[in-house]
Design a protein around this nucleic acid. Structure first.
Lengths: 205, 205
DNA sequence: ATAAAACATTGCAGGGCGCGCAAGATCGCT
DNA sequence: AGCGATCTTGCGCGCCCTGCAATGTTTTAT
């Protein structure tokens, strides 16, 4: 069956593209994790992925994108968010929609460990992680606005999007910092719970 | 030793440096606001500020830094935060410490309008605005940790820092978007109030 | 099956960025 | 005035990123 879910047909071409893209990101992450961002050139990454340096830029607009590139996660997040029943509060809905992202992290655990390692060592990359670009943020803002029943120019949707994005990135950074790697879902839950309660100060020990 | 207030002694040299730095940022902002980020070269900025292109890089590590460069705002914010009485809750303390930043924005209103204009048109710059770099964030995290009475590796300080940073950037973006430019302090207050209340959904109209 | 259209990869050329180095100018201090 | 520290500048270099045109491969249409 070729008309399975939503995709029209993979085709050899698309498969090769995905392969090449994956090879480039993996090569980039491994090399940068080893030597540091500045000590790795696009030429070396392309070499490791066995493509021409010019081809690298057919896949990624810049070197950083090979490390934190989105790969359509954002679009799926938006779709998932739109599918959550409208009566669910916004924070809970966002948290629920993140389950899919968390699953993807689980599915490619090693790669994500590498990625977070690279990101924590190059904090300039952090904001670009997961919904870091303007287009994605805008899309999420619109869906959130629709959920709460206000216009997309209202302050609330943008605030919630920015703040929850920060909370998510915080949870992922924490996940990467712990050597024993607790479940990412728990860390995200903690952060979202703190948000929903107004960031109450923890009890002094 | 001229131990007047806090500064040792301005001196002609420092004055010239400040002048040059200011000239570079202003030139950069004006040119980029006019033509767009990609259509302005470092050479043109340096030309407009009447220094050599090489000198530009003695002041800023990259082109972007001339647009969103910190100028020590972060250090003052940290100092200010440490000066807030310990019994004040963290969110209120952060909000209070931001008064100084808000005053600086007021003092250089035109420049900040330009800057926010540039930032909104180039959203990749947004995270680097006001405490966007790793060192600054780390400093704020430490002060917050000390205030709350937990270690700097506890999750809470980092979460609060990341989230309030997002809220501040949200307020500034909103400030820039409004043609009538309401008082920035009010927008920051709104955002912080929403945070403290756990981001309650607004009433549907 | 064969031809045509569509697309991916590559090399080449080039502008711009960012930095290390060393010479010259300027400033602060005694 | 003179010395040391600091700042500016020119030069050169490697790297990033893009546009263009040629080649080869996959897909589609006939």
């Amino acid at each position: 069956m070729t008309s399975a879910g939503t995709e029209p047909a993979p085709g050899r071409r698309d498969r090769k593209k995905r392969q090449t893209r994956a090879a480039l990101t993996e090569a980039a992450l491994r090399l940068v994790a080893e030597r540091g961002l500045a000590q790795v050139t696009v030429e070396e990454i392309s070499e490791a992925a066995d493509v021409s340096p010019r081809t690298f830029f057919n896949y990624f607009a810049c070197k950083d994108d090979a490390l934190v590139g989105d790969q359509g996660v954002a679009a799926r997040l938006v779709a998932r968010l739109a599918a959550v029943p409208p009566e669910v509060p916004v924070l809970a809905a966002l948290r629920s929609a993140l389950d899919e992202v968390i699953d993807e992290v689980r599915a490619e655990r090693e790669l994500w460990c590498l990625r977070m390692d690279v990101v924590t060592r190059n904090p300039a990359l952090l904001p670009r992680l997961l919904a870091g670009n303007a287009e994605t943020e805008r899309a999420i803002v619109e869906v959130v606005a629709a959920r709460v029943g206000v216009g997309p120019d209202h302050a609330y949707p943008a605030l919630v999007t920015a703040v929850t994005g920060a909370a998510l990135r915080h949870a992922m950074t924490r996940w990467a910092a712990h050597p024993d790697r607790p479940d990412l879902a728990d860390l995200v839950d903690e952060a979202f719970a703190a948000l929903a309660e107004g960031l109450p100060q923890p009890d002094r020990p």
